[in-house]
Design a protein around this nucleic acid. Structure first.
Lengths: 243, 243
DNA sequence: GCCCCGACTGACCATTCGGTCAGTGCCATC
DNA sequence: GATGGCACTGACCGAATGGTCAGTCGGGGC
């Protein structure tokens, strides 16, 4: 019965989560081990035997709780996503200035990523992979929630007059998330670069990056006149207006 | 993939590249298929049988050219990296203003990524994976070259007085690369968000993102005093006197 | 006492994996 | 025509994969 086993089993088991409401002792271990190994090695490179051994249970035990490797993976993803929920939204209500919120949000994002790296790794792996798969919609959902909440923060800043009125909040959101995710992803490479040595600490990077994001790259037009850099971009508006 | 423990074979074959200088007909096909499948499914999920079938050759043929799956993967990675080399460096010499270069560089980065998505996928997968592996140093090298060249662009902009003198060029570089990589990685998710609908085209996104990066988020300090900040910093100071 | 049920296991299955090997056909050289 | 090197192949290997199954164990209800 090689392929026929794919037919849905007649059991009343929920398709993704395990069927015991309160997690049995071994069950929790399995989930934890699966999260660790899936995030570390990816879906294919993490084998059920490895996960079972890591959790200290038999492989058949896992199949007692989950009907397939996919189901286990999905359960891990769902658990990770649930843990993540609703952190950004909470920050919206805080009364501090938007510019400060920005820095704090970036720092909090980074902090969470480095604290529990399995989650961003799982989600980004899922996002990056192509083709519409079950796990992807979960990851999409998480990213989407983050996106909406973050964008609301920018719009709040605009409503308060702190951020430029003609700011594109969607682009700003993308840049902020990008700043966090990319830093996390390439941390191992970045931290060995001498130029980045002053910003290897996530908190420091969050300060510097949000500062740059706030002020922009250009020389301030108002008072750069007398200093060492007199020439400004606005001095040549003809060619600058092209883009 | 547990500990390799493979003893080096005594053959005189170059360790990574195939041993025929001019690529045999089948050989090129193998490389191309391997690149496609490795980038699409990752190292573990792409099997040698798949690659062989995709290339229209026998599996044994691949082992005639490459001594292991790892060697084939490394050859693919190296080939992709070589193709990528030296594109950013060329842009440095161009006489156009730095702000314009910034936008062009971002657009070019995105264009290349979407044009040949295998390369960034391979490299980022390699960067993201943890543990010091052979393939990682290759990917590191690529990212590093990109980083150095991009940072030089920012410093050139500073030297010309176009960019703020106290700009942190390393942070700026990170943000620019982040803007490109993250947009590429999460394109599938982003492009379904209605808020991003105006920036789903990479070129348009490059314009908007670089514009935001240049000008920053904050309302221009000069004249935000009165109304809800309608004036943008791009407004020339000459006409600003009228308001 | 008994029984049932769910957590759990060791042995096992078919399949596929990375990798090997003896051998085939081709072509340039002698 | 014989030779040798080379691209290439089909059949095969042991190991590992995802998945199955008959069965053990212990605790709670009767």
């Amino acid at each position: 019965m090689p392929a026929a086993a794919k037919k849905a089993k007649p059991k009343g088991v929920p398709p993704v989560a395990g069927h015991c409401a309160t997690l049995c002792p071994g069950h929790a271990q399995v989930l934890e081990s699966a999260k660790a190994l899936f995030s570390r090695h990816g879906y294919d490179a993490a084998s059920m035997s490895q996960i079972a051994a890591h959790a200290g249970v038999s492989k058949a035990n896992i199949y007692h709780h989950y009907e397939s490797k996919q189901a286990l993976y999905l359960a891990v993803l769902r658990m990770a996503c649930d843990e993540h929920a609703g952190r950004v939204e909470a920050m919206l209500d805080d009364p501090m200035p938007s510019s400060r919120k920005l820095c704090r949000l970036l720092a909090a994002d980074l902090h969470e990523m480095f604290e529990r790296p399995e989650f961003p790794r799982l989600v980004m792996r899922e996002i990056t992979q192509q083709g519409a798969r079950t796990g992807k919609v979960l990851a999409d959902e998480v990213l989407r929630r983050d996106f909406i909440a973050t964008q609301a923060l920018f719009e709040q800043g605009q409503a308060r007059g702190e951020f430029s009125a003609d700011l594109d909040s969607a682009i700003a959101t993308t840049l902020l998330k990008a700043a966090a995710v990319f830093f996390f992803q390439s941390y191992e490479v970045l931290r060995h670069r001498p130029e980045m040595s002053h910003a290897v600490k996530p908190d420091r990077y969050a300060e510097l990056a949000s500062d740059l994001l706030l002020k922009g790259l250009l020389t301030p037009p108002a008072k750069a006149a007398g200093a060492a850099a007199p020439a400004r971009r606005t001095a040549a508006p003809a060619q600058a207006a092209r883009t």
